[in-house]
Simulated scan of single mutants.
Amino acid sequence: MNAEIITYFFILLLAVSFVLPACYLLVLHFDNKQYSFFKKLKWTALLLLGLLLLWMTLPSFTEMISRDYQLSEGGCFLKVVDSKSTTTEVTFSETNNTFSFRDAPDLDAYDEKIPYYCQVTTTRNGEFEIDYRVYDKDTKKLLYAN
């Protein structure tokens, strides 16, 4: 399992762990005078944050569980966004779709002038990137797979 899938499930677990206790405390103890206004405000903010995270992750939940992924392929170029965090952007030449990954392949060059052939796997709705493969443009030899 790669880092992108682990991150997805971590965000989903974090959202559930925010929403359930916040709902419990707000619904059952909202009229309780023991809890101050700021404590209720804190739990409301936690509930809203959890709902935001659920809103981001739930549309892709069935696709992640059933591994119903979409494969995009074609001519592309790679760009290393930040050398410290080694974030790589894969941009397809024909469609201009850009996908971001947290690892940098060890290739000769990264630039718009150096074309590669790429395969990027995402969820069907395109919200979460799963993995990518980089091939030589001419020989289709696999250069990198994360």
Rank of each mutant, 00 (worst) to 15 (best):
E4L: 01
I6H: 08
T7M: 05
T7V: 08
Y8M: 11
F9A: 09
L12Y: 06
L13W: 14
L14A: 08
V16D: 00
S17Q: 04
F18G: 00
F18L: 06
C23L: 11
C23V: 08
F30Y: 14
Q34C: 04
Y35K: 15
F37D: 01
F38G: 15
L41H: 09
K42H: 01
W43N: 07
T44W: 10
A45W: 03
L48A: 03
G50H: 01
L51M: 08
L53P: 04
W55P: 01
M56H: 11
T57D: 10
P59H: 00
F61W: 11
R67T: 10
L71T: 15
F77T: 09
F77D: 07
F77L: 07
L78R: 12
S83T: 15
E94Y: 08
T95E: 03
T95M: 07
T98G: 00
F99H: 10
R102G: 15
R102V: 13
D111E: 10
K113Q: 06
Y117C: 06
V120A: 15
F128M: 01
I130A: 12
D131N: 15
Y132F: 15
Y132G: 05
Y135A: 09
D138M: 14
T139F: 02
T139P: 01
K140F: 06
L142Y: 11
L143P: 04
Y144N: 11
A145G: 14
A145K: 15
